[in-house]
């Protein structure tokens, strides 16, 4: 095959790709309202994409940092996987704060987090809604140290769950200011009765 032929073919393949879509969209700085589940604002731009049952925000790609807003999860299901997938523990509306932490640990270990340690567990408010905040660290198999924050609220029989995880030596520190601002602005609106 000659070089020119190959180049032509590659260009054609690339054009086909161009017709498709990229995975990440730009999230401009503004006020956000995710289907009236989460209300928050950001002052900087992020990259965003949809994952299973979650909207993911990232600055440098999820290998290095990720902020997840999970769709409210009903009793008996996991925010991480469809019902049929057994390895993630189900959320239950009667969970105590320690059960929620245990639920978080088991869920994270099934996304390959090792040596999970909690630095703190604090009661917080998301607007009118009571919630718990867990600050934690873990290691990836490669031994890369990660740091994270989980906000969990049981509200209207569902689990509201926001999770931030980032590489600890640079990316966590570089982002924590912006993330804390987002979390401080976060509201879980009272359910509009339909």
């Amino acid at each position: 095959m000659s070089g020119g032929w190959k180049a032509g073919l590659s260009a054609a393949v690339l054009l086909v790709f161009l017709a498709g879509c990229t995975r990440y969209q730009l999230a401009e700085p503004r006020l956000y309202n995710f289907e009236n589940h989460y209300l928050f604002k950001t002052r900087t731009a992020w990259n965003t994409t949809s994952e299973y049952r979650a909207v993911m925000w990232t600055k440098s790609g999820e290998i290095l940092d990720a902020l997840y807003f999970f769709e409210p999860t009903p009793n008996g299901q996991s925010p991480f996987a469809p019902e049929s997938q057994e390895k993630f523990p189900p959320f239950r509306t009667n969970m105590t704060v320690l059960d929620l932490r245990d639920f978080l640990t088991t869920s994270l270990s099934n996304i390959k987090a090792l040596d999970i340690e909690y630095q703190s567990a604090k009661p917080i408010k998301l607007g009118q809604t009571d919630a718990h905040r867990f600050d934690f660290t873990y290691r990836r198999k490669s031994r890369l140290e990660m740091r994270g924050i989980a906000l969990l609220a049981i509200h209207d029989h569902h689990l509201y769950f926001v999770l931030f995880m980032a590489e600890s030596s640079h990316y966590y520190g570089a982002l924590i200011g912006e993330v804390e601002e987002i979390l401080a602005s976060l509201r879980v609106p009272a359910k509009a009765k339909s």
């Binding site: 390895k87 270990s109 099934n110």
Partner: peptide
């Protein structure tokens, strides 16, 4: 505990 965390 590791076995139980497999959640099966």
């Amino acid at each position: 505990e590791d076995e139980i965390r497999l959640n099966d």
